[in-house]
Simulated scan of single mutants.
Amino acid sequence: MNIMSKSKKAKTACPNSTTRNPMVNDVRERRLMKELQDITNNATTFTVDLVNDNLFEWHIKLHTVDKDSHLAEGMRANNISYILLNMTFPENFPFAPPFVRVVAPIVEGGYVLDGGALCLELLTPNGWTAAYTIEAIVTQVGSALIKGNAKIAKDGRKFSLKAAQASYKSLIKTHEKYGWVTPPKAEG
């Protein structure tokens, strides 16, 4: 992982923002720089690379999942060393959730929707709190993949950003209308 050299560049490589409130952008940048440094120094199950040296878009490689899971079994069988996630941070982060999606491999189940979008309440405006760290989000995504019995798809299709965004919008509308179902305590 070459994150240290990228994080040093990120301070100058951040795109000029045109948000109405420059203080919010400053909060976003400081928070992401701190999170990136913490992950670089402490994370053991995943690594982070900035996409095109952009502090506001990350590729996260989830290297470790429960070794007894269907997902880990499929990763071993297909010689896949990580699940690639894409995380983009809106202008009002950390007051709004990042958009997170699975990029590769194609995963079925595990709360993964069309395009790789994720059906997790904490990634929606109603379930989000600024106290969530990126490490906590990645941990929750990994847990959801396992709890939802995610498997590596065997077909040749690919996830797309457009499909993921459409799935996410539909998810938000559905849960705003019907709420979130809480599983019985016996299921965790």
Results as ranks from 00 to 15, higher is better:
1 M>I: 10
1 M>R: 14
2 N>P: 09
5 S>F: 13
7 S>H: 08
8 K>C: 06
9 K>P: 10
10 A>G: 05
12 T>K: 15
12 T>N: 14
12 T>M: 09
14 C>M: 07
20 R>S: 13
23 M>I: 10
26 D>E: 09
27 V>P: 09
30 R>D: 11
33 M>T: 14
35 E>C: 00
41 N>G: 01
43 A>F: 09
45 T>H: 11
51 V>G: 11
52 N>Q: 15
61 K>H: 09
65 V>Y: 15
65 V>S: 12
67 K>V: 09
67 K>I: 11
75 M>Y: 01
77 A>D: 09
80 I>H: 07
81 S>F: 08
85 L>A: 03
85 L>S: 05
87 M>K: 04
87 M>D: 02
88 T>V: 09
91 E>V: 14
92 N>G: 05
96 A>L: 01
101 R>Y: 02
102 V>D: 07
104 A>G: 04
106 I>G: 02
112 V>H: 05
113 L>Y: 12
116 G>D: 05
117 A>Q: 11
119 C>Q: 11
119 C>G: 08
120 L>G: 00
120 L>D: 03
122 L>W: 08
126 N>I: 11
127 G>C: 01
128 W>L: 01
134 I>C: 02
135 E>S: 06
135 E>H: 05
137 I>E: 00
140 Q>M: 06
140 Q>V: 00
140 Q>F: 06
143 S>Y: 12
146 I>P: 12
150 A>W: 11
151 K>W: 02
151 K>D: 05
153 A>R: 09
161 L>V: 02
166 A>Y: 04
166 A>G: 06
167 S>R: 04
167 S>A: 10
168 Y>N: 10
170 S>R: 13
174 T>P: 06
175 H>C: 00
176 E>L: 12
178 Y>L: 13
182 T>C: 14
186 A>W: 05
188 G>S: 07
